[in-house]
Simulated scan of single mutants.
Amino acid sequence: MESWKWRGRFYLYRWPSQRALKVLRDKVRTATSRSRTERPVAAVVAELNPVLRGWAGYFRKGNSARKFVAVDQYVHERLAIFTSDKHGLSGRNWAARYNYGWISRLGVFRLAGKWHGATAHAQR
């Protein structure tokens, strides 16, 4: 594992792998598939939150902030498209209809801000 130095300390230079991101995206895609639009959005969020919470807990050590933001954006997009399909709305203007306030009111677990920079050695 590589490390990088910031403010006199060495930090781990690691983040989630492409395979780990693909597995998470597959779980989100399955939960928000178009064939499951009969389910309420709250049930989909209740299914996704433990997955997101566990994934964040496992990968929060290191340098995962950018990957966490990318996952948050992906979850937001999938939920907005799912809700658009559920309500019969077409088009790619979901970003205007389903903004950050909407996803916050749903109670979706957000990964951004949940990472902790792990030092490469024990602190003294």
Score class of each variant (00 low, 15 high):
M1N: 03
K5E: 14
G8M: 06
Y11R: 01
L12G: 06
L12N: 08
Y13R: 15
Y13Q: 13
R14S: 12
R14L: 14
R14W: 10
P16F: 07
P16C: 07
P16Q: 05
Q18W: 11
R19N: 05
R19M: 02
A20I: 03
A20R: 11
V23D: 06
V23A: 11
L24V: 07
D26F: 02
K27Q: 15
T30H: 12
T30L: 12
A31I: 13
A31M: 12
S33M: 09
S35M: 08
R36S: 14
T37K: 15
R39Q: 15
A42F: 04
A42Q: 06
A42V: 01
V45N: 01
V45L: 06
A46G: 14
A46T: 11
L48E: 02
L48D: 01
V51Y: 07
L52I: 04
R53C: 00
R53E: 08
A56M: 09
A56T: 12
A56H: 08
Y58R: 05
Y58W: 09
F59P: 01
F59Y: 13
K61H: 15
N63Y: 15
N63K: 06
N63V: 05
S64Y: 01
S64M: 07
A65M: 05
K67D: 02
K67Y: 06
F68W: 05
F68R: 03
V69C: 06
A70L: 12
V75T: 09
H76Q: 14
H76R: 15
E77H: 11
R78L: 10
R78V: 01
L79P: 13
A80V: 01
I81M: 07
S84M: 12
K86P: 13
K86Q: 15
H87I: 00
G88Q: 03
G88T: 00
G88W: 13
L89G: 04
S90Q: 14
S90C: 06
S90A: 08
S90I: 00
G91W: 11
G91L: 00
G91P: 12
G91T: 00
R92I: 10
N93H: 15
R97K: 08
G101V: 09
W102K: 03
I103L: 15
S104F: 07
S104N: 14
L106C: 03
G107F: 04
G107P: 04
R110F: 04
L111G: 01
L111N: 02
A112R: 11
G113N: 01
H116S: 02
H116G: 00
G117D: 07
A118I: 01
A120H: 07
H121L: 14
H121G: 13
A122M: 02
Q123D: 14
Q123T: 11
R124H: 07
R124I: 13
